[in-house]
């Protein structure tokens, strides 16, 4: 059991990061802190994907320039999985866009209500 946990420490760290982010998104009162939580949550998922594709001692998945690449049969085990990194490039773009929208909205809410505190804003809106 302990062996397994130590062997897959990257996933444990990722889960901890994601939970910190999720907690901030749900429980924090400050809108900016919620945005930060969202960024942490998304970063956690990005690290999750990256760490699942990483491999010790592996090389770039480019066949022609690999170590003696042209002369040997292609062994998939020698290469890092490029797909997860490509997927995460897209996910980073999506995450940045979402964060931008969220921060813009937080700023607009602040201009309107002069507060980042959720309860105070709701109090003001309910008047």
């Amino acid at each position: 059991m302990l062996q397994e946990l130590i062997a897959s420490y990257n996933y444990i760290i990722v889960v901890v990061i994601m939970m910190i982010g999720l907690w901030a998104m749900l429980a924090k009162q400050n809108l900016i802190k919620k945005c930060i939580g969202m960024a942490i949550f998304q970063t956690g998922i990005i690290l999750f994907y990256i760490s699942m594709g990483a491999k010790k001692g592996s090389t770039l998945p480019i066949l022609e320039h690999a170590h003696d690449g042209a002369h040997h049969a292609v062994v998939a085990a020698h290469y890092a999985n490029p797909l997860t990194q490509i997927l995460m490039l897209t996910a980073i773009v999506v995450g940045v866009a979402t964060l931008g929208v969220a921060l813009t909205l937080a700023q607009k809410v602040y201009q309107q209500n002069r507060s980042y505190h959720e309860d105070k804003i709701l109090e003001k809106l309910s008047k």
Binding site: M25, L26, K34, M38, L105, A106, V109
Partner: peptide
């Protein structure tokens, strides 16, 4: 803003 949080 709440929708953004829940949606993401």
């Amino acid at each position: 803003f709440n929708y953004v949080m829940m949606g993401s």
